[in-house]
């Protein structure tokens, strides 16, 4: 059965006809993220199966990198968060995760949850410290609630 289909189909018909890039796994507008802290909103949203979607990435490139602040829409509300784990291939020694993880924070940088049950990359320590110097808010508070560093 398959051989007859094979004989009829041209190899040209097997291609998609336009060029595509490799899968980049970027975090940008309308990306769905996984909330990894134990905040009420976060846990409810993940349980209902309506994960937060990115509305704004606070970045010149508009593509989220590790430690970037993003604005997400959860359960009809706008919340800010910090990306703590990316599916995108990272530089050497920076860990890559199987899901795009986010920790919800408020405008001052205090996280909404009390514990992060997923490992966090150690490079966040340096990134968040630098971010704290440039703006008024203190983003290193979420490091205090992290349980494991990878």
């Amino acid at each position: 059965m398959f051989r007859t289909i094979l004989n009829k189909l041209n190899p040209v018909e097997l291609t998609c006809g336009f060029h595509t890039t490799a899968c980049l796994n970027e975090v940008r507008l309308l990306t769905r993220l996984r909330v990894v802290d134990n905040s009420e909103i976060g846990m409810r949203a993940m349980a209902e199966g309506k994960p937060p979607k990115v509305i704004c990435v606070y970045n010149k490139q508009r593509v989220g990198f590790i430690g970037d602040r993003v604005m997400v829409a959860i359960k009809g509300q706008k919340k800010k968060g910090i990306l703590v784990g990316l599916k995108q291939t990272q530089k050497v020694k920076v860990p890559k995760f199987d899901s795009n993880n986010i920790v919800l924070i408020d405008d001052n940088g205090t996280p909404l949850g009390t514990r992060i049950h997923v490992p966090i990359p150690t490079i966040l320590r340096t990134i968040l410290k630098e971010k704290t110097h440039s703006k008024g808010a203190d983003y290193t508070k979420l490091l205090a609630i992290a349980t494991k560093f990878v």
Partner: peptide
């Protein structure tokens, strides 16, 4: 897989660090 989260890390074999 650490705490039910899959993690992958790349290393250079000849990295001096």
């Amino acid at each position: 897989v650490v705490d039910h989260q899959g993690v992958e890390v790349r290393y250079d074999l000849y990295d001096p660090t």
